[in-house]
Measured scan of single mutants.
Amino acid sequence: RPMNAFMVWARIHRPALAKANPAANNAEISVQLGLEWNKLSEEQKKPYYDEAQKIKE
């Protein structure tokens, strides 16, 4: 299954978030990633939607 825009973004940002929160488990990191993603504007998300579309094609 191809990655969606959030997954493209999260793949880039997960390592830094995990390093900054070494005690957090994957579920907690995923929740935090979701919160951070939701704070982004549509303009900030656009490159990730574009990349996800390329992956689908």
Rank of each mutant, 00 (worst) to 15 (best):
R1A: 12
R1N: 11
R1P: 13
R1S: 12
R1D: 11
R1L: 12
R1E: 12
P2E: 15
P2N: 13
P2G: 11
P2L: 14
P2D: 14
M3P: 12
M3N: 08
M3H: 09
M3L: 11
M3Y: 13
M3F: 12
M3R: 07
N4M: 12
N4C: 15
N4T: 15
N4D: 12
N4S: 15
N4K: 06
N4E: 09
N4F: 09
N4H: 08
N4R: 06
A5P: 04
A5E: 02
A5N: 00
A5Y: 01
A5W: 02
A5D: 01
A5R: 01
A5F: 02
F6T: 00
F6L: 02
M7H: 07
M7G: 05
M7Y: 12
M7I: 10
M7V: 06
M7D: 13
V8W: 06
V8M: 09
V8R: 06
V8D: 02
V8F: 12
V8K: 03
V8E: 03
W9R: 00
W9S: 00
W9D: 00
W9K: 00
W9F: 15
A10N: 02
A10T: 04
A10H: 02
A10E: 08
A10F: 06
A10W: 06
A10K: 03
R11F: 12
R11H: 09
R11W: 11
R11Y: 12
R11G: 07
R11N: 10
R11T: 11
I12A: 09
I12E: 09
I12C: 07
I12T: 06
I12W: 05
I12P: 00
I12G: 03
H13T: 09
H13K: 08
H13M: 15
H13R: 14
R14L: 08
R14K: 08
R14G: 12
R14W: 13
R14T: 04
R14H: 05
P15C: 13
P15D: 09
P15A: 14
P15S: 09
P15M: 12
A16F: 13
A16Q: 12
A16D: 05
L17A: 04
L17C: 05
L17Q: 03
L17M: 11
L17F: 14
L17N: 01
L17Y: 13
A18N: 05
A18H: 10
A18K: 15
A18P: 01
K19T: 06
K19I: 08
K19H: 07
K19E: 08
K19P: 01
K19V: 07
A20Y: 04
A20Q: 10
A20C: 05
A20D: 05
N21C: 08
N21A: 03
N21Y: 13
N21I: 04
N21G: 02
N21R: 07
P22Q: 04
P22T: 03
P22K: 04
P22R: 04
P22E: 03
P22N: 03
A23E: 12
A23I: 07
A23V: 06
A23T: 12
A23K: 13
A23S: 12
A24V: 04
A24G: 03
A24R: 06
A24I: 06
A24C: 07
A24N: 04
A24K: 11
A24E: 03
A24W: 15
N25T: 15
N25H: 05
N25I: 04
N25G: 10
N25C: 05
N25P: 06
N25E: 04
N25A: 05
N26P: 13
N26M: 10
N26E: 14
N26T: 11
N26D: 14
A27Y: 14
A27G: 06
A27K: 14
A27S: 09
A27W: 14
A27H: 14
A27E: 12
A27D: 12
A27L: 12
A27Q: 11
E28A: 09
E28T: 08
E28C: 04
E28L: 06
E28F: 11
E28Q: 10
E28I: 07
I29N: 01
I29K: 01
I29D: 01
I29P: 00
I29V: 05
I29G: 01
I29Q: 02
I29W: 02
S30E: 15
S30C: 15
S30A: 13
S30D: 14
S30K: 10
S30L: 13
S30F: 14
S30R: 13
V31P: 01
V31W: 13
V31Q: 11
V31E: 09
V31M: 12
V31Y: 14
V31K: 14
Q32P: 00
Q32F: 11
Q32A: 11
Q32K: 12
Q32R: 11
L33G: 00
L33A: 03
L33W: 01
L33V: 02
L33F: 01
L33R: 00
L33S: 00
L33C: 05
L33M: 05
G34E: 15
G34P: 02
G34I: 15
G34W: 15
G34K: 15
G34M: 15
G34F: 15
L35C: 05
L35S: 06
L35Y: 08
L35A: 08
L35N: 07
L35P: 00
L35W: 09
L35D: 05
L35H: 08
E36H: 08
E36Y: 08
E36F: 09
E36N: 07
W37L: 00
W37C: 00
W37Y: 02
W37I: 00
W37R: 00
W37M: 00
W37H: 00
W37S: 00
N38I: 09
N38W: 08
N38M: 13
N38F: 09
N38V: 06
N38Q: 10
K39C: 05
K39S: 07
K39Q: 06
K39L: 09
K39I: 04
K39M: 08
K39A: 09
K39Y: 04
K39T: 05
L40V: 02
L40C: 02
L40F: 03
L40G: 00
L40K: 02
S41G: 05
S41L: 04
S41Y: 02
S41W: 01
S41F: 02
S41N: 08
S41P: 06
S41K: 04
S41M: 03
S41Q: 03
E42L: 14
E42R: 13
E42F: 15
E42M: 13
E42Q: 11
E42P: 13
E43Y: 08
E43H: 08
E43K: 09
E43Q: 11
E43M: 10
E43C: 05
Q44M: 07
Q44K: 07
K45Y: 01
K45P: 01
K45E: 01
K46G: 04
K46T: 05
K46W: 05
K46H: 05
K46P: 00
K46L: 07
P47K: 06
P47E: 05
P47V: 06
P47G: 03
Y48R: 00
Y48M: 01
Y48F: 10
Y49G: 03
Y49R: 11
Y49E: 08
Y49K: 06
Y49L: 05
Y49F: 11
Y49N: 04
D50Q: 10
D50S: 07
D50T: 08
D50H: 10
D50E: 12
D50K: 12
D50V: 13
D50M: 14
E51Y: 13
E51F: 13
E51S: 06
E51G: 03
E51T: 09
E51V: 11
E51W: 13
E51A: 13
A52I: 07
A52D: 02
A52N: 02
A52Q: 03
A52F: 11
A52C: 05
Q53M: 11
Q53L: 11
Q53I: 10
Q53K: 13
K54T: 08
K54M: 09
K54F: 07
K54G: 06
K54D: 05
K54L: 10
K54V: 07
K54I: 08
I55C: 07
I55E: 06
I55Q: 10
I55R: 06
I55L: 13
I55D: 06
K56T: 13
K56Q: 14
K56P: 06
K56M: 15
K56F: 14
K56N: 15
E57R: 07
E57P: 08
E57H: 11
E57K: 06
E57L: 11
E57G: 10
E57Q: 11
E57S: 09
